[in-house]
Amino acid sequence: MADPYFFGYGSLVNLATHDFPDPRPAKLKGWRRAWKHTDLRSVAFLTAVPDPDSEIEGMIAHVPKNDWAALDEREWAYNRIPATQSVAHPLKQDVEIAVYAVPKDRHKAPTDHHPLLLSYIDVVVQGYLRIFGPDGADRFFATTDGWDAPVLNDRAEPRYPRHQQLKPEETDFVDDRLRRASVRVIQPHQQKEADGLPASFKF
């Protein structure tokens, strides 16, 4: 029987956010990332979208005993999609690899009411910096669409449940790349209660 693995391309690249065994760098061909909002969540988040000309880096990790329950709960707004033939990895044994993605008919553009969270971006970029270095983190930005979306600066009171403490140089990297991408950052005082963004939510 093939060993079950997942391919992570966002927060799952940050190994501080999970303890799945045997994490390995890998590449997913035929996909890229995009920031999207759906009616299933209050904020925008990363999803993978098909793109035959693109390849993205990420991490694979083992799902012991084929027990997907915890990961399915974490990725509850996504569909789990077979992707074994699209993933280049260093493993020698027979594996089956899945990737999580939001169905295309549930995609919506982020808005000021449903922005990206800076605490979430921080976690994702920290993961890429630590696994793939600055060049790999730059490739993350280059292979991700949707940087024209608004970003809520929630660092002082992180709303992302798996937020991490960044080193100063990691924070500087994130801020610099967001500036280069001309990302519009919304400060907390600009968010009104009427915007409907709760202080906490199931991410």
Score class of each variant (00 low, 15 high):
Asp112Tyr: 12
Pro110Gly: 08
His18Asp: 07
Lys104Glu: 14
Pro64Ser: 04
Ala83Trp: 01
Lys167Cys: 00
Gly127Met: 02
Trp76Glu: 03
Asn153His: 01
Pro64His: 02
Phe203Leu: 09
Leu15Val: 15
Pro168His: 04
Gly8Trp: 06
His189Trp: 01
Thr84Tyr: 06
Arg162Trp: 04
Asp154Ile: 09
Arg41Gly: 07
Ala16Lys: 11
Pro50Gln: 08
Pro168Glu: 07
Thr171His: 08
Val125Ile: 09
Trp76Ala: 10
Tyr100Asp: 11
Glu169Ala: 07
Asp19Asn: 15
His107Met: 04
Ala137Ser: 01
Val87Gln: 07
Leu28Gln: 03
Asp22His: 15
Phe45Gln: 12
Ile81Leu: 06
Tyr100Gln: 10
Asp22Val: 14
Pro4Gln: 10
Pro198Arg: 02
His62Ser: 11
Ile131Val: 15
Glu55Ser: 14
Pro115Arg: 10
Asp135Asn: 13
Lys108His: 15
Asp148Pro: 08
His113Met: 14
Pro188Met: 04
Val99Pro: 04
Pro50Thr: 05
Pro50Val: 05
Ala149Met: 11
Val183Thr: 09
Gly10Tyr: 09
Ile186Ala: 04
Pro110Ala: 10
Leu46His: 11
Asp51Tyr: 06
Lys29Pro: 00
Pro110Ser: 08
Ala2His: 02
Leu118Asn: 05
Ala109Phe: 12
Gly10Arg: 06
Arg162Tyr: 05
Glu55Ala: 13
Asp175Tyr: 01
Ala181Leu: 13
Lys192Tyr: 03
Lys192Val: 06
Gln164Tyr: 02
Val185Trp: 03
Ala194Glu: 14
Ile186Arg: 08
Pro21Thr: 05
Phe141Lys: 09
Ala48Ile: 09
Ala61Arg: 05
Gly10Cys: 11
Val63Asp: 03
Tyr160Ala: 05
Asp172Val: 02
Leu40Met: 07
